[in-house]
Design a protein around this nucleic acid. Structure first.
Length: 572
RNA sequence: GCCGGUGUAGCUCAGUGGUAGAGCACUCGAUUCGUAAUCGAGCGGUCGUGCGUUCAAAUCGCAUCACCGGCUCCA
């Protein structure tokens, strides 16, 4: 298709972000202090307005801060406005913030008096011998002001008295006065549920989140960036551009690709197949379900059962909708006896898998229950691992850069506890991953103990047009499946040996990657991906027939062309 | 799954107990008008679903489904 190569020429203009984005400072010490202090001011404001609220934790985050409260009355959107107003009063009062190292027992008594059970729990967990500090907003001389219990709705913000004081058990650091925060450089963003200690069996708390910056300009830039992210939301664009839908009648997390979205998917898939054939892969197709025994053998049933759908009864046998493709590739491998001479075997499949995701976690194309992995497995010898991983890195780079992603963050995850396999083989695999990264010349961070139980891995996060990171590609060395399935090959000396298996995906999930593409390009796809590449607009009925002919010719040349007759209404 | 919110026309939304609305889109007609939004008419909804309260329910109650913001989870 000659026209396709024209369409893919890099000389063609690429869509750029329509809104120039202001560079925001990353998390500096000054910002951390601002945000941490904001969290305290938030908690003070909440307890002034809702004396029945109990405080828990309130850290800084990448863009701001949050504080979790245990409060019997649910906070609503209007409350956030009142709380923010109250926070500004505390800021404008320019109260001093004073650190104090305290004696454990007296603090404990005081927390008991204040009825702050969560803080007591935190205090109890501070290792003995470690100093315990608290931070006052206002003067420490008066202790913490207690506000009378009252109906929250009846409480008017009280004037901040000069002797007003509030404190929180906290390691810091903080600013030295509330007035160091610009009253127009923070904003409360949302209230949402959260669990005490992030554990769903523990008390359900209410989390108030906010954002805070050094200057109002930075806040504005951040809010503009948020606005830009909302504008690019793939759920919104997907609907507007008629790319895909999720049908309530069918169920959550199941994606319907409409004609225009399906055109893009086909371009992506065709490209992917070609790239993989070029890189020495064979393509497989495997079923969507299989006997549950297979998943017991693979270990998925034991380790990841909660992510699998319930089994389906088939004539007294239990069948399982596949949550992963790997066991199928292993079965394909085992159908024949393999020689070391065949290695490396590279088998790829666009395999659709189904995983049970809890209803509250579904999110457009980003988190679904049925999705297509661009999965592949490489079976090879120990001394081929480095070269194979390097090959995967090269292919990954080629593919991602063709989709406009040139900036990655790379993570190497090493052996966790517990895990399977000998130290020797872990060292070999980890070293192979590191060698490949070194030859490739990629900077990476090491996540000690972050690997899968069956082997170490490399993860790639791509940076999109507005600076967000998305984890897509993953390369994993696996010792578990070859062992569990007792995979073999015939070595040069005629003995039977265990092959090494590498799992890898470049897009990860085709659905999710499509969502990322929509957001990255803000719906303005480059020509080679665009669902409509050429649109003809005849201005009069007399040109209609000729225009149709031209559209037909363009289509025959491989262009995605359309006739737009809406202009014809003008001239009859 | 949990907490809070939302669900009304293809889209964006108004309508809090008394005969379902607007703008855009779409269809038809008029208008030859130079960068999205000319004028008129028309089409279009069992108000997410079910049960209940009531003389009367989009509106109140219960249940349920989906979506949104988070939590949790993510092989």
């Amino acid at each position: 298709m000659p026209c396709l190569s024209i369409a893919m020429s890099s000389a063609l203009p690429r869509p750029v972000a329509s809104t120039p984005l202001v560079a925001l400072p990353s998390s500096t010490d000054a910002l951390q202090r601002i945000r941490h202090t904001c969290a305290h001011i938030l908690a003070m404001a909440v307890q002034r307005l809702f004396p029945e609220a109990r405080v828990t934790i309130g850290p800084w985050t990448d863009t701001g801060f949050f504080y979790d409260f245990d409060c019997p009355t649910p906070f609503v959107a209007e409350d956030l406005k009142r709380i923010a107003t109250e926070m500004r009063r505390i800021i404008r009062a320019d109260l001093p913030i004073i650190q104090e190292t305290v004696e454990r027992e007296s603090l404990k008594a005081e927390l008991e008096r204040l009825n702050e059970p969560y803080k007591l729990e935190i205090l109890d967990r501070i290792p003995p011998g470690e100093p315990v500090t608290r931070y006052f907003i206002g003067s420490p001389d008066v202790g913490r002001t207690q506000h009378p219990e009252a109906e929250p709705s009846l409480i008017e913000p009280l004037p901040i008295a000069p002797q007003e004081s509030w404190w929180d058990l906290c390691a810091g650091p903080h600013l030295s006065r509330t007035g160091e925060i610009h009253p127009k450089a923070f904003a409360l963003e949302s209230v949402a549920g959260a669990y005490w200690r992030g554990d769903e069996t523990q008390a359900q708390l209410q989390r108030i989140s906010g954002t805070a910056w050094e200057t109002p300009e930075q806040l504005q830039a951040y809010l503009t960036q948020q606005e830009e992210a909302r504008r690019r939301d793939h759920r919104k664009l997907g609907k507007a551009l008629k790319l895909f839908s999720i049908e309530e009648a069918a169920g959550g997390g199941l994606v319907f690709w409409h004609p225009k979205g399906a055109r893009i998917r086909r371009v992506i898939e065709d490209y992917w197949r070609q790239a993989h054939t070029d890189a020495g892969y064979e393509l497989l197709f495997t079923p969507h379900m299989a006997n549950l025994e297979l998943w017991k053998t693979s270990g998925h049933f034991d380790f990841y059962r909660e992510g699998m759908f319930e089994a389906i009864a088939v004539e007294e046998q239990a069948y399982q909708l596949k949550p992963m493709n790997c066991p199928f590739h292993v079965l394909t491998y085992q159908h024949d006896l393999h020689s070391y001479r065949e290695f490396p075997l590279r088998w790829a499949e666009l395999g659709t898998v189904y995983r049970y995701e809890r209803s509250g976690t579904l999110h457009g194309l980003m988190r679904v229950r049925g999705f297509t992995q661009d999965d592949a497995h490489v079976f090879c010898l120990p001394d081929q691992v480095t070269a194979e991983i390097l090959g995967v890195l090269n292919l990954t780079e080629r593919i991602l850069s063709d989709f406009g992603f040139h900036d990655y963050e790379v993570n190497l995850s090493t052996r966790p506890e517990p895990s399977v396999g000998s130290d020797e083989i872990w060292d070999l695999a980890t070293q192979a991953l590191m060698n490949a990264l070194q030859i490739k010349g990629w900077q990476y961070q090491t996540d000690e103990g972050g690997g899968a139980f069956y082997g170490p891995k490399i993860d790639l996060k791509i940076r999109d047009a507005i600076g967000r990171l998305w984890q897509c590609s993953t390369i994993q060395v696996d010792f578990n499946l070859p062992e569990r399935f007792q995979m073999q090959y015939v070595a040069a000396d005629g003995s039977r040996q265990r092959p090494i298996m590498i799992h890898r995906a470049i897009f990860g999930s085709l659905e999710r990657f499509f969502g990322i593409l929509i957001e990255n390009y803000a719906g303005l796809f480059p020509l080679w991906l665009a669902p409509v590449q050429v649109k003809l607009l005849p201005v009069g009925e007399s040109q209609h027939d000729y225009s149709s002919q031209v559209v037909q010719q363009l289509k025959q040349l491989g262009f995605r062309a359309e006739l737009d007759v809406s202009a014809i209404a003008w001239v009859k």
